[in-house]
Simulated scan of single mutants.
Amino acid sequence: MSPRQNTVLGLGLGLAAAGAATAAGVAAERVTKTRRRALLTLTPEGLYDHKPDKELVVVATDGVPLHVEVDEPDPAAAHPDHPTIVFSHGYTLSLKAWVLQRRALVQAGYRVVLWDQRSHGQSERGSRDSCTIEQLGRDLHSVISEVVPEGRLVLVGHSMGGMTVMALADQFPDLIRERVIAAAFVATSAGGRNMVTLGFGQFLGRALGRLGPRLLDQLGTRQEWLNSVRHLGRDLEDFIVERWSFASPVSPAAVRYTGDMIFRTPFTVMSDFLPSIDLHDKRDALAQFHGIETLVVNGTQDLLTPPDHSEEIVRLVPGAEHVVINEAGHIIMLEHPEVVTGLLLSLVERGLRAADEGVRVERKPRVRRTLTDVAKRRKVARARGRGRHEAP
């Protein structure tokens, strides 16, 4: 491989894993093979395989087919007044990002609906002009109209998915007011600022944001070649995924699972969405969630949507509960799955109570909690202890 090709490959992997337009010029000590073997114990039971009860296609307003999956609860656990929980994933990810939460929620008796946002996962590509947060809001409305035409709703959005939920509220406020009993904004932002900083600060981040679409388009012309040689840069790929996705040890399976979602997103798709993400501003739309049970979650070390983005959402939604998770990065639902799942289950229960008892949610005092995933810390300590014991 020529020096020029090596440069292009390294740049491409960095751009993709960061979930935006930046090249990763990084140097760091790699975890040892022994430690990687030890961290296998952090892999969730059943890995990440999941078979939905139903798969279908919903056609968006502009004709783009959207992939949707539905999980139905056991009739013995289901309740007629239970809401349907609709998940929206983040930029460069897919509905697979929610695999651990969907399992737990359906087991708790809830119907779960997930979808791949346009140009992501198994959904079809949209035109460049259609790759906007506003269109994603219309897409989510199409999914709800066809798959959940009636009944109570809980909306959960991560990163760009949270922005999609805000765009839905902006364009279809009656749906929010009449049917949504709870909403969760996970590692996301209401915007109103330069969004593409990637942990590099406003000055460098703004420059990267301007250059990103052009660089990604150039990489898109070499997409097939880059895909064919991905295995040659696997160590770099894994390092970058860990750097921008997580802030605590995760299993190699989690890194690979996340990396596969990210790197299967074409560079041109990343380029298509960046301008709309960078200009995103849905602060006014958050008024539609006044009186609705709302959860805002972020990680203390999220490089893509830092904690101050979540604090702005909480400021604009009276009564919102704000949970900050220590040692957590951007892909928080795969990094601390039990914590996130527990928070969502509690949110749904609060939403049901508020709806049934007429609780004035907006009058609740602001609640801000900082959590540490103690159970995971213990697992990591045991894994590292075994790794040291097995080391030659």
Rank of each mutant, 00 (worst) to 15 (best):
S2P: 14
L286M: 10
H158C: 05
V148K: 10
F172W: 08
A381Y: 10
H330N: 03
P83C: 06
V380Y: 06
L274I: 08
L236N: 06
G126E: 00
T221R: 13
E134I: 07
D49R: 11
L345N: 04
S119W: 00
G387D: 15
V148F: 10
V340S: 01
A207F: 09
G199A: 05
G63N: 13
N227C: 12
T197N: 07
V106Q: 01
I332C: 05
I133W: 00
D49S: 10
A104V: 12
T265L: 04
P80Q: 08
S346Y: 05
E311C: 06
E312Y: 10
W225Q: 13
A355D: 07
E357N: 11
L40S: 12
E335Y: 05
G199F: 02
Q288V: 06
D53T: 01
P44E: 15
D308R: 12
L304I: 04
T197R: 06
L232D: 12
V348P: 00
G151D: 11
G161T: 08
V229H: 13
A97I: 02
R128T: 03
P83W: 02
R234D: 13
R350H: 07
E29M: 11
D71S: 07
H280W: 09
L208D: 00
Q122Y: 15
P249E: 10
H280T: 09
A97S: 05
V112H: 01
T84L: 08
P275E: 04
V297D: 00
R193S: 15
T43M: 12
T258L: 04
D116K: 08
V361A: 05
R118K: 03
G46S: 15
S271L: 04
L219G: 13
M1C: 13
H280Q: 07
L371M: 14
Q107M: 09
S2K: 11
I144V: 12
Y91S: 11
A182R: 01
R152A: 10
G259M: 04
R363L: 15
A381L: 15
Q171I: 07
S248N: 02
V148R: 08
L344Y: 02
W244T: 07
V70T: 09
A187K: 00
V229C: 12
G126I: 00
A328C: 15
L15F: 09
S88D: 09
E178Q: 15
L11C: 14
V348D: 01
G387P: 14
L40C: 13
Y257E: 04
R384L: 15
E357Q: 14
T268N: 11
A23L: 14
L15K: 01
G212M: 03
